[in-house]
Nucleic acid binder design. Structure first.
Lengths: 326, 326
DNA sequence: TCCGTTGTTGCCGTTTCGGCAGCATAATGC
DNA sequence: GCATTATGCTGCCGAAACGGCAACAACGGA
């Protein structure tokens, strides 16, 4: 009966646990584990589909290498020796890394498919996420990415309802069903054209802003919730005010030169970098920041595809200089 | 040049990392890891002390098995491919389990020595610990066990000062430098001879006890701290009282028939089981229990020998019906 | 242009793996 | 009590795997 080489199987199919064990681990360890599981050379040999003599020899070889018996031979019954118990207990930890590696590689190769359901607040969803999605999509072409651009509050809702796997948004105080796996506090300020009167003010306050027409987010935009107390407490007279539901529209209104848009710099970093817009953080005491985070459900682990995406996203944002981050 | 079999080295010596890797893992994974580390077939071959052709072939075989390239060959430079990065990252987790297993086995075999410094409160130290120490000592004959029988408060002190590795004692509220890894609340009561007048009282109170001569622990015995408020609040008249610094002496005084000893049943379980003494838990509302625990230093991991002893101790006490445990 | 280095391939000898046959012994069933 | 079945182990052998040597093509640096 011929020996079965590791490559002797169609590579288009996923590797089974037993095959990938043979790829990575010495037969002596594999056969030891089988014997430790069944406490029988013959039963282990049947499960491994090899001759019992092969199992006996491999175990003996491992005992020689370690210099101690791994089994107590009691007449014709086997018991794990103390050393065998130690090795058996520790070798259980070899399974997960190799299965994870192979699963992830199969996802990479496309022999395994999957999907990731993502939601993001618009400012991040239209600025930084596209680059991440592009890089990720190139690497994992067989993965389906399902992306929604929605307000932060709805990102949280969909996470809790398990309609999405990962969220990107601004949330100061997440509910307990949600973990913030990566967080950055981002400063809030005023966005305006360079020739706006406030553009040259170094220590800008909300009161100064209120002397000019303002563009702010509607209540469902997370920034609004944060700045609302300052809007109310800083003004007896409401300035000309426009409320919008799109960060992009805030940027466009600022570009028009008439309005000062109250927001974080996220979503306008290209215009700021090019000099077409100016961002001035608000210097009022007590103005909070807006808290950006990568959101996942608390207490439950992600499936493979979302988990891989999550690691990529985390690394991506950790290496990113998020504009306005304190 | 001949092949070096795994058994070809003196077994009396500890296994090096590279040798134990060869014992457990396929050469293809080993060589892959070396190449991934050095990003050079030739450099990896030098470090592994094999021919570069062997390394090239083993990596190729692994690539065949997984169905994907693990390296990008750029002219004559290698870079890890995405799949290679995945495998490399996951395979790092194979090292610790095998090194831990071999270290522990070497401790078992006695080729590696070590010591465990232990301190225990007398009640546990003279009752349950000897069995544990005996079992453990038989299994690990080359380990030195350094055991002190001291009051619980001093157990905690020595832990914090790093003069011991593991403590067994009673402590209601450990300092933050100490973790209680295993805990049981043990009831406090009265120990007396069977013909003592209180022996037949079913719902015994401290007040009833105070009508009789009492034996209690000195302030350094942990029980005393717990019962002190009840001694003070239950009596206007102090009964004849003897204070001792030894649990064993409390047991002996109870055996004498004259005194009622206030303690937990731990330290007297043999006398109680044989009927020579009777234990009655105090039924007063609000009488706390005495908290027994296995104590380790918070925030720092144990060295190998103490870690192994700790696992044994934990398993031992988990399977033990500690007398008086609630 | 020359030299040193890289990764790879062909060929070959040695080592390892595992199957077959058989052994001694223990356990089970009648 | 005996026959049968099952166990773990050993001798022998063929196939597969490992790894060394020699040589190659190609790249990079002086």
């Amino acid at each position: 009966m011929e020996h079965r080489p590791a490559a002797d199987r169609p590579r288009e199919h996923a590797l089974s646990s037993s095959l990938l064990a043979r790829v990575f681990h010495q037969p002596s360890l594999l056969y030891f584990n089988a014997v430790a599981t069944h406490l029988s050379i013959r039963e282990a040999a049947r499960r491994l589909d090899v001759a019992s003599s092969a199992v006996t020899r491999q175990v003996a070889q491992l005992e020689d290498a370690l210099g101690i018996a791994l089994f107590l031979r009691e007449k014709r019954r086997l018991r794990l020796s103390p050393a065998g118990e130690i090795l058996f207990r520790h070798s259980r930890r070899l399974v997960a890394p190799m299965e994870a590696a192979v699963s992830e590689i199969e996802l990479l190769r496309g022999v395994r498919a999957g999907s990731v359901r993502i939601a993001a607040a618009e400012s991040v969803g239209l600025s930084f996420l596209p680059i991440l999605l592009t890089e990720f999509g190139k690497r994992y072409p067989r993965l389906t990415l399902d992306v929604a651009i929605i307000p932060s509050a709805e990102v949280v809702e969909r996470l809790v309802d398990e309609r999405i796997d990962i969220g990107f948004g601004f949330i100061a105080k997440p509910p307990r069903q949600v973990d913030v796996a990566f967080r950055r506090d981002v400063s809030i300020g005023a966005l305006m054209s360079p020739d706006h009167p406030l553009a040259t003010v170094q220590h800008l306050t909300m009161a100064q802003c209120l002397d000019h027409p303002l563009a702010v987010g509607k209540p469902e935009i997370s920034i609004r919730e944060v700045i609302e107390p300052f809007l109310k407490s800083s003004a007896n007279i409401t300035p000309p005010l426009v409320e919008v539901s799109s960060i992009r529209l805030l940027v466009e209104l600022a570009l028009g030169g008439h309005y000062v848009s109250i927001m974080t710099p996220i979503g306008a970093q290209n215009e700021i970098a090019s000099g077409r817009l100016v961002f001035r953080p608000l210097q009022d005491g007590g103005v909070p920041t807006n808290r950006f985070g990568i959101l996942v459900r608390a207490g439950s682990s992600l499936h493979l595809a979302p988990a891989i995406f999550y690691e990529h996203a985390k690394a991506y944002f950790e290496n990113l200089s998020l504009p306005g981050a304190v």
